[in-house]
């Protein structure tokens, strides 16, 4: 079972207490009415999905019911840190090259 550290509760809890809430640090346009459809659509719907360390928003759904951020590797699932909203992460996002495919695998 995966343990996730909740920065509000101050302890690690089992993964089933949490719910992922997508990419973190998405700034809402200051003046939504001035956005083009493309700009608003980009803000509303389009998310990155690379391999590597990503900053994500998580919810401690069964515990304190608070949102926080996590820096998670999208391939290994390793969570290298969690931090409160408003705090700065200590790990930067990375984009990893795909691993070479094993011989005989089809593209």
């Amino acid at each position: 079972m995966l343990y996730i550290f909740c920065p509000h509760c101050g302890e690690s809890r089992s993964e089933e207490e949490f719910a992922p809430a997508g990419q973190a640090h998405i700034a809402r346009p200051l003046d939504p009415a001035a956005c083009s459809d493309a700009e608003w659509g980009e803000y509303m719907w389009f998310r990155d999905n690379p391999r590597g360390l990503r900053h994500e928003l998580w919810l401690h759904a069964a515990g304190c019911r608070k949102y926080f951020n996590a820096t998670r590797h999208t391939v290994s699932y390793e969570i290298v840190e969690t931090y409160k909203i408003g705090e700065k992460p200590s790990f930067s996002e990375t984009v990893d090259e795909p691993q070479p495919q094993a011989q005989g695998a089809t593209a």
């Binding site: 089992s14 759904a61 515990g63």
Partner: peptide, 10 residues
């Protein structure tokens, strides 16, 4: 006192 999962609920 903790909130957690319990019997498949919370």
């Amino acid at each position: 006192a903790v909130g957690s999962v319990f019997a498949k609920t919370q």
